[in-house]
Each structure stands twice: as structure tokens, then as C-alpha cells.
Amino acid sequence: MAEPVLIVMCNFPDAASAERAAHSLVERRLAACVNILAPIRSVYRWQGAIEQTNEVPLMIKTTASRYAALEAALLAEHPYEVPEILAVEANRGAAAYLQWVADATEPDEHLPDGL
């Protein structure tokens, strides 16, 4: 059985920053796949005021063992002061897909820091 797969959600302020992050995460093998979803309108409380803004959500598939590095990469690249980074474990899934996620996020010994 493959290790636990996580689905990580993270919103970005625009398509360009979302696409940069998606490519970086997959290139660095921190994510097997990143879906760049349709823009959404977010309403939230920030510093005592109700705000609303358009955002581009990413749905990121990774493994539990790669989560810490993925979160660190998102925090380093994200333009928000407090980016939304939420992870949930996939309780079920097609065995072949779950194994593919594990294989696609296996650290590459030829990359710096084993990324």
C-alpha cells in the first residue's frame, strides 16, 4: 500500500502566481499533480474588516512525507502574509493513482537537497 496521499488547497491572487507555484511544485517533485482551478471570489475577515477578492485556487496532490517541504515552498513563494494552506488526507482512491502520486513525489537524488 502506498503512503498516505494528501490533497492540499492553496489560493493565489492571480493566474500567473498560481501557475508559477504549480510548475515549481511539480518540477521539484513536491507535488505529483497540481490542478489550477477556475477563479473564485473569496469573502473573509482580515485585520478586523470584511474583505473580498478574486483568487485562483490550486488543488495539490502530494504525500504525507513530502508535505513539510511542500508547505515550506508555498510559504516561501506565496505573496500573501498568511496564505491559506489546508491539507486533507485522501481516505480512499484508486490504488494505481495513489501509487503514482507516491512515485511522482519520490525525492530525486540528482536534485539539490534531494528535492
Rank of each mutant, 00 (worst) to 15 (best):
E3A: 13
P4E: 09
P4W: 07
P4I: 00
V8N: 00
M9T: 14
C10H: 08
F12C: 15
F12A: 11
D14G: 11
A15V: 05
A15P: 03
A15K: 01
A16W: 01
A16K: 12
S17H: 05
S17L: 06
R20D: 03
R20G: 02
A21L: 01
A21M: 02
A22M: 01
A22K: 07
A22T: 02
H23D: 06
S24K: 12
S24N: 07
S24A: 12
S24I: 09
E27M: 01
L30M: 12
A31D: 01
A31W: 04
A32Y: 10
V34C: 05
I36T: 14
L37Y: 02
L37W: 00
L37C: 04
A38E: 15
I40V: 15
R41A: 12
S42K: 07
V43N: 10
R45M: 13
W46H: 04
Q47I: 05
I50H: 03
T53Q: 15
T53F: 06
N54G: 08
L58K: 06
L58N: 05
L58E: 03
I60C: 10
K61G: 05
K61E: 09
T62F: 04
S65D: 03
S65K: 10
S65T: 12
R66K: 00
R66N: 11
Y67M: 08
A73K: 14
L74K: 12
L75W: 10
E77K: 04
H78G: 02
E81M: 05
E81H: 00
V82A: 14
P83D: 05
P83F: 01
A87W: 00
V88L: 10
V88Y: 07
A90Q: 10
N91M: 13
R92Y: 10
R92I: 10
R92S: 12
A96F: 09
Y97M: 08
Y97F: 15
L98S: 00
Q99D: 09
A102N: 12
A102L: 08
D103E: 13
D103R: 08
A104G: 00
T105K: 01
E109T: 15
E109G: 15
H110V: 07
P112K: 00
D113H: 15
G114E: 03
G114Y: 10
L115V: 12
L115S: 09
